[in-house]
Design a protein around this nucleic acid. Sequence first.
DNA 1: TCCGGTGTTGATATGTTATAACATACACTA
DNA 2: TAGTGTATGTTATAACATATCAACACCGGA
Lengths: 161, 161
Amino acid sequence: MSDLGFKAHDHSDCVNSAISAAEARCAAFDLRLTPVRRRVLELLLAEHRALGAYDILAQLSAEGLGAQPPIAYRALDFLVKAGFAHRIEALNAYIACTHLGADHTPAFLICRSCQSVAESDTAMTQGRLGDAARAAGFHIEHTVVEAQGLCPACQAQDAAS
Amino acid sequence: MSDLGFKAHDHSDCVNSAISAAEARCAAFDLRLTPVRRRVLELLLAEHRALGAYDILAQLSAEGLGAQPPIAYRALDFLVKAGFAHRIEALNAYIACTHLGADHTPAFLICRSCQSVAESDTAMTQGRLGDAARAAGFHIEHTVVEAQGLCPACQAQDAAS
DNA sequence: TCCGGTGTTGATATGTTATAACATACACTA
DNA sequence: TAGTGTATGTTATAACATATCAACACCGGA
Ligand SMILES: [Zn+2]
Ligand SMILES: [Zn+2]
Ligand SMILES: [Zn+2]
Ligand SMILES: [Zn+2]
């Protein structure tokens, strides 16, 4: 479990270690972190916020790395398949993984005010949903768990105003 | 908890009671179940499957009830706000509520093969996600819990082939 | 009865997100 | 060198969603 994203931390460290971990994983599994893919990962890592595919695309375009939607979508697909990023269904947007390398079932806390996102963890076969699935004979392959609300900072701001 | 949608049941009964409950709720809360809204609810109730806004719109259009996107979206918004339907984020689609009237926090089991959807229940402040949120000081307002996988029927079919 | 507020619908246009389809470049290897 | 697989480049379009303004009905109070 991690609430990174709502907490102060050494973020350049956070970015560097994520990139290193991605490189290591690519080397280990024979994946290619090409320039576009690497840049998209960097963009996602820049803040603990979800970015839409077209936000990404605008950046890539500004940097001369490609201007058509598939450029962004293919890079994002690669990152998601490789486990370097996650898609946030409730926002139609993408975020860098903060548990890079570890096998995990992500869950997200999404602030509706500042759009910051923290990645937590669930065990998809546990809890009430797991019980319901077992009772129904349903075989879970993937879970989407996304909580929306207010992060600590935005609650404080709300209270102040 | 309910795994309706994967189980055989008297579906016309299922539809009728849902419509009745919706009517009762509209009467009680001074909401208006207008012809378009009622028809959209019926369409969503027809099967335990999620329908896209444009699927709905195509039906409405064929029946002369409106042909522009806002017609469908307004009706869907009403149904969702009234608690008569839910939006499935992972599919960008909508489904009728099977706990109509009861105050609840829905969770969904979505079959990737036959697209049928069963509505279950979660307690959003419970479980690991609730723990994570509390630890982070995050205030949860709404949760999206959607499990994707294979329903019992499709597992059987898979095994047979 | 008239009027103004509110809520619903009708219609056009536009914005946003995502993929299909096809062509090309490039690296590896048989 | 020819063949294979992966990644890119490019055009077009599909699919999902909202903004905006006009018209109309319904209801309570003047
Ligand atoms: Zn960080
Ligand atoms: Zn916030
Ligand atoms: Zn039914
Ligand atoms: Zn199925």
